[in-house]
Structures are given as structure tokens and as C-alpha cells.
Design a protein around this nucleic acid. Structure first.
Length: 313
DNA sequence: AATTTCTCCAACCGCGTTGTG
DNA sequence: ACACAACGCGGTTGGAGAAAT
């Protein structure tokens, strides 16, 4: 496919930079240069490689198209399922999601989400942003099954900083994916909800509370929440095989694991992630995800370097 | 067959974060 | 502590091709 037409505002201030679609010749120059010299120093790369492109453009072209580890072809159902789960957990953090799907780029996943999955969820009556049932679906029925819905009557026992909102709390389980929700479908901006958590096989987990943005750290309930959350991830066909190799749920002791902590930007946290935001708990989400998602979807027999690149930002 | 509308996705832009002096 | 440069990310754009009319 051809790229977009050059626009009036150049991404680089330098005049004379070429923009728009890359030619095969440019691709070859860039690819061979990066193979020879390695990634990085993008700013100076065009000059060193003899390209009339800005560094940004070179980097993007390499990352999204030329990198040898990139997997071609349509998104598989397993990958789609994984994207859905990761998006539910992480929100629009495409680079982080892509880091867990070998051979796929953040741009590709973002595009796939916007063109396919988003519409698919809407069609199913699910808000693609929050992964909640859309209000209209709750009123009139929807493909997603409402497992439990009860008012948060014991909100009094919530921590002080989170009692805002007069919301009902619901736990919803999607038929296909075993979705875990603890969110109020009408209030995207409230903190953690009082909720019952269901695993994919219907086991009810203890109700938990979370906190709004200011509430960093792990409260007494966090372990249960994450056990439930990750159970909901793990108790799926594609994960069962590898995640339970040693006969126990790998996430059951997840919160106490001592793993490498990768600093992750949460400035762009989407609302649903704020609601169930592992990043805010002090837990090692990266480590959890590493275990949860790399092995089972190891298409190429190993984790490509770019996955670590993404995750290790 | 011609035209319009829709879909897809490569590429760009702006901004936040990180690194360096 | 501060300023600046470089990098990386997410949101958005718009051209090409497909589908519909």
C-alpha cells in the first residue's frame, strides 16, 4: 500500500528531507545500514547512511516494517485473544502490548484494534475503552453475560479516598473470554469498585477495593485481586498448557515474587486501567506478564529482541 | 462502467520521558 | 538543578484499494 502524501508541516525542521512512502531502494539502504551498525542514534543515522529522511522516519520504518523479526500475515485468533486480554489489562499502551506478541508491532496492533477489535467489541455491546458493557446493552440485554450485579452497599468500609460515586458495582463475565470486570458501566472515572471477582471458571474471589490515582501501593486486598485477575487470564485454553506446568497456578504467589522491575510510564493510563491498574499496586506486572504471555505464544521459538526492547523502555 | 463510500494501514505529528553535559 | 537533545509512544491523517450503489 502507498503511504500518505507529504503534508505541509514537516516532522523534522530540516528542509530538503524526503517524506511520504519509502521506496525499495531506501528500504535497502536503511536495512543494510542498521544491520551493519545496529539500532540507535537515529538522529544521525540518515546522514551516516546517506538517506534524505529524518531520523524519526528512519526509526519508524525500521521498527514497523524492516526489522527482520517482524511477523507477516494476518492476526491469528490466538493473537487477537491475547490483544484483547492485554488491552483489557493495559489499555491503549500499544508498545507494551506489542512487546508481548512476538513479531507484531505496536502500530500494527493499534491499527488492528482500531479497525477490527474495537468494532467487534462494540458489536458485542462492550465498550472497547473500558471493556464494560455499554449502557444500552445493560438495559436491553447483550451477548455478555451478567454474572453478578449488586449495589456497593458496603461502600462504607471502603478506604476514605475512594468512596466517590454512587455507582453500582458489577462483575461481568464475558462468555467467550471469561472477562473479568469490576467496573461500573456508567462511571468510567471512579476508582476501584466494590466487586465480586469471578475467575474464568466461575469461582468467586473475595471482593476487593482499589484506590484512585493517589493510592499507590499494595493494600491488603491486592493479592486477591491479582490472583483473580490473572486467574482470569490464565484460565484460558491457550494459556493453560504452559502457565500451569508445575501443577499450580503460576499467579497464585505472583505478588510475592521478586522479579526485575521495569519502570513503566503510566501517564497515559486509560480509564479502565485506572480502575484495575496493576501498575499502581507496586506489583511487578512486567514480571507477571513475562511469565504469562511470552512462553505460550512463542511463535518463533524464542522471544525476539524487540519484545524486550518494547518492554524495557 | 462510473461514482461514491468504506476500510485498511503506513506514515506523520506532538508530546512526554530519558539521557547527557 | 537546569537545559537541551534524543528517543519512543499514542493519536491521527489521508491515500490506495475494495465494496457498494
Amino acid at each position: 500500500m502507498e503511504g500518505r502524501r507529504p503534508t505541509a508541516t514537516p516532522c523534522c525542521s530540516k528542509v530538503g528531507m524526503k517524506r511520504g512512502p519509502w521506496t525499495a531502494e531506501e528500504d535497502e539502504v536503511l536495512a543494510s545500514f542498521v544491520r551493519r551498525e545496529g539500532e540507535g542514534r537515529w538522529r544521525t543515522l540518515p546522514k551516516r547512511a546517506g538517506l534524505l529522511r529524518c531520523g524519526k522516519s528512519c526509526r519508524l520504518r525500521w521498527v514497523n516494517y524492516l526489522r527482520p523479526s517482524i511477523k507477516r500475515g494476518p492476526i491469528t485468533p490466538d493473537e487477537e485473544d491475547l490483544i484483547l486480554r492485554l488491552h483489557r489489562l493495559l489499555g491503549n499502551r500499544w508498545a507494551l502490548i506489542a512487546g508481548r506478541i512476538p513479531g507484531r508491532t505496536d502500530n500494527e496492533i493499534k491499527n488492528y484494534w482500531n479497525t477490527h477489535l474495537r468494532k467487534k467489541l462494540i458489536k458485542q455491546g462492550i465498550d472497547p475503552r473500558t471493556h464494560n458493557l455499554l449502557p444500552s446493552s445493560i438495559d436491553h440485554g447483550s451477548p455478555a453475560q451478567l454474572v453478578s450485579c449488586h449495589p456497593a452497599t458496603d461502600r462504607d468500609s471502603m478506604p476514605q479516598e475512594m468512596g466517590s460515586g454512587s455507582s453500582e458495582a458489577v462483575a461481568i463475565r464475558n462468555d467467550r473470554c471469561g472477562y473479568f470486570h469490576g467496573l461500573n458501566p456508567h462511571h468510567d472515572d471512579v476508582g476501584w469498585q466494590n466487586c465480586d471477582v469471578f475467575t474464568a471458571d466461575g469461582d468467586q474471589m473475595p471482593a476487593c477495593y482499589g484506590v484512585e490515582d493517589g493510592g499507590k501501593g499494595t493494600d491488603a486486598c491486592t493479592d486477591d485481586l491479582f490472583s483473580a485477575l490473572f486467574d482470569s487470564f490464565v484460565n484460558e485454553d491457550m494459556f493453560n498448557t504452559n502457565c500451569s506446568q508445575d501443577g499450580e497456578n503460576m499467579f497464585s504467589s505472583s505478588s510475592t515474587r521478586n522479579c526485575n522491575v521495569v519502570k513503566e510510564d503510566d501517564s497515559n493510563m486509560s480509564p479502565q486501567v485506572e480502575l484495575i491498574d496493576p501498575m499502581d499496586t507496586g506489583l511487578d506486572l512486567e514480571g507477571l506478564l513475562e511469565d504469562a504471555f511470552t512462553s505460550p505464544v512463542d511463535f518463533d521459538g524464542g522471544i525476539p529482541a524487540q519484545c524486550k526492547d518494547h518492554a524495557g523502555k
